[in-house]
Design a protein around this nucleic acid. Structure first.
Lengths: 326, 326
DNA sequence: TTGTACGCGTTATCAG
DNA sequence: CTGATAACGCGTACAA
């Protein structure tokens, strides 16, 4: 590989000038800049990442920890992050925690050694561990809020609120919320928001769970729904698909007998019969934004904001007014 | 961060000895080794990756390019690779090509600058480009074979052959194969194998496609199936799900009217009605093996083997003898 | 505007 | 078995 010294020689300048010509063009005479640039191009020069990292103290690597990749839910998030990383000349070091707090901690430690900072999607795991981690390394949380730590969250609670408004307007008064993992931060936000909103409107939200966010758990849940519930909201798409399946098997029709909606929107939800109302979570933006936030941190911005992204309901055929109201 | 020099001082030895004590313990007296180890632990020493990379010429990073993450098909592959990487103290630099050859090339170039080697899952893209790339950097292909380049492939052609045997034994004589993307290497292997096998057995394989490997394309395909086909094999799970849906909508029952099977096995295939026969592709092993192969390359093994992994049929309720034979 | 010289943290070479 | 010391390739004060 051609080194900076090679380029410098070829251009008839010193290493220092060559370096400046490429990194800080404004500090160098236009003619020499051109000469160096030409030499670099001709030799196919690429600055050695390790050497640069050694002097600058920056690796240009961003650690990204996600709970799983088996749920395509996270794909857009990763894509968004990757695109943002590309634009900032950085790379993504991706690791999968499998919803396992201990494993997640180990991965985070490992990644910290190589990465400038971390982005973590960590629905489970303790606040204090995250706080502690943030003190050592720049860290941006996704879909999770811990004190004033920098975070990017999709406001699914607000989205569900909006959705509940819609259901209330349609005449629903008894709504079931099938919740997700016990320690999910987002889930708690939602339950709180829904409960407040329902009681204000003289309606009732029946909470089922906590449950693992799986198809099978959805089938189980379909058997445990309260009799008077005319609409069901579920923590995620898998639970929702399970519910749809379970309801169908039990002879309860959607939306005639019961309305159904999900708090996230996997593409399959639009291909079921009926297509299922869901919250459109802007995951790609979230991923990109997390990278941006992280770079801000790395550049010394001390303002740690948490960005809220809107999660708007996408109304499909699975939600309709309850029986009495048609 | 504590540096090697700090450790050396704390242990009362030179940098050199400290380094040896940690990296090549056998070259050092047991007592000093202990002293150094203790000092390192106490100071929480972690070797600086950049510095190490600079001297050794190895970054410990492995580039992994996959076509997409939206298809959970690739999740186990990534997991397998990640676990293998962990065991060898290396990290995964993951990038998503989105089945886009040009984008893939750009990503590979970018990754090459940081990574010791590349693992590419590249169903599309030209042979010559891959050959050229291999000459510059260690490269392992997954699910794709190009000359003698190191590769890890799941033998889905053999698996389909086995499956076809089963169908033939059940009495099927006219079988449709719904094929995937036009330039898919694996797809071509399968068509060839199936055709040979069928004609040898006096049966016929009707090829549909090429098609995009999507749910919607599966629905389309269900309308274009030859009337005499009593069994349908499909390129992947999405096409299969589409076919199942389309057949159902057209009033054709699986497996009573037509048998159905997929050449890969997404978990949803076991949750449909009926559950669908599929090829169990050992993706996790493939991912792990790719990492192992790459490390061999990096360690100078010049033997470039291509590993074939067995893809065995998992028989489920979607395949049964054709009408006449029951 | 350009060049010299040093430091980043580690591993490897070569004496001792 | 251990200790100096020289790389590795780059960025950047500092000097010219």
């Amino acid at each position: 590989m051609a080194t900076l010294l090679d380029v410098a020689r070829a251009a008839g300048v010193s290493k220092a000038t060559a370096s400046r010509a490429l990194q800080r063009p404004e500090l160098v005479a236009e003619t020499t800049r051109l000469r160096v640039q030409e030499a670099a191009d001709r030799l196919g020069f690429h600055p050695n990442a390790a050497a640069r990292a050694l002097t600058t103290g920056r690796t240009g690597l961003i650690g990204l920890i996600v709970p799983t990749l088996s749920n395509p839910f996270f794909a857009p998030l990763v894509m968004g992050a990757q695109q943002a990383a590309e634009e900032t000349e950085s790379h993504l070091l991706i690791a999968v925690s499998e919803y396992h707090a201990q494993r997640e901690a180990a991965l985070a430690d490992r990644l910290s050694e190589q990465a400038d900072g971390l982005i973590m999607v960590t629905p489970v795991g303790t606040d204090t561990a995250l706080r502690e981690r943030f003190r050592r390394r720049p860290l941006v949380l996704v879909d999770r809020q811990v004190g004033r730590l920098p975070a990017v969250v999709a406001d699914t609670a607000a989205g569900l609120t909006e959705l509940l408004d819609h259901l209330l307007a349609q005449g629903h008064r008894d709504i079931a919320y099938v919740s997700g993992p016990a320690d999910s931060w987002a889930d708690e936000q939602r339950r709180t928001a829904l409960a407040a909103q329902a009681s204000a409107a003289g309606a009732r939200v029946h909470v089922l769970g906590p449950l693992p966010p799986t198809f099978d758990a959805g089938i189980e849940a379909s058997r445990a729904l309260p009799d008077d519930a005319t609409a069901v909201l579920a923590y995620n798409s898998y639970l929702t698909l399970g519910l749809l399946h379970g309801l169908g098997a039990a002879g309860r029709r959607v939306p005639e007998d019961v309305s159904l909606a999900a708090a996230d929107d996997l593409s399959t939800l639009s291909a079921t019969t009926p297509p299922v109302t869901a919250l459109d979570v802007p995951l790609q933006e979230a991923g990109a934004l997390a990278v941006t936030r992280l770079h801000e941190l790395l550049d010394g911005h001390r303002r740690t904001v948490t960005s809220r992204l809107p999660a708007a309901p996408v109304l499909r055929a699975s939600t309709a007014p309850p029986r009495g109201r048609r």
